[in-house]
Amino acid sequence: MLILRNISAFYGNIEALRAVDLHVQEGCITTVLGSNGAGKTTMLRAISGLIPTRYGEILYYGRNIAGEPPHRIVRMGISHVPEGRQVFYQLSVRENLELGAYVRSWRKKAEIEKDLDFVYRLFPILGERERQLAGTLSGGEQQMLAIGRALMSRPRLLLLDEPSMGLAPMVIRDIFACLKRLHQEGLTILLVEQDVQIALSISDYAYVLRTGKVVLEGPAEELLKGERIKKIYLGEEF
């Protein structure tokens, strides 16, 4: 579905991604692991068009989408839940979700209404707080809202940037349970995480990124069992 081929991208003058190759299989959860500064966020931002890539191709259903602006990428069915949630603080929960459907024709009100219901069923707390300003929600609720907003564009591929960041373990478990459910309903997910255990527990395939390069990849189960990932994290290798 999505293939990154030899992608390089810069963060200022620093080469944050160095010739990265990555495959996202349709219908799977693919995870990219790595510590801070490994280039995970840069990779998602390159895919969704927020930053330019220097070299390489991003193939989405065989078409190179590198260099397309974000508003076109969203229309193609790739939705990005950014680092730090980035919800619209001064707007209500409902307005945030409606903006998520911005790329869809507003004549399809009934359909959008149905998807709102879907999001409220997925995250009931959002339904209860429909009228509340997003800025007054807790971190976990804001994360749910950011995911809900991304779903409102009816994506085929969901990009998630560290949904666990700064959240209590129980909230993290809830959110990952929802991700698993979305996956079971057919959504393809590309997840970026630091929390290795929980990310691998729901993933099909995983990559480990270190200073902008893929240093390890394999089926999630194998990585979970293997010792190598721990060593990479502890810095005993390379």
Binding site: P69, P70, H71, E98, Y102
Partner: peptide, 25 residues
């Protein structure tokens, strides 16, 4: 209107506006 909502979204958070598919330019 859709235009107005897009403008307001840009005002609040331009990056989030781009991510929901608003053509900020």
């Amino acid at each position: 209107t859709k235009l107005g909502k897009g403008l307001r979204a840009c005002a609040i958070n331009p990056e989030a506006a781009r991510l929901v598919g608003i053509d900020v330019s």
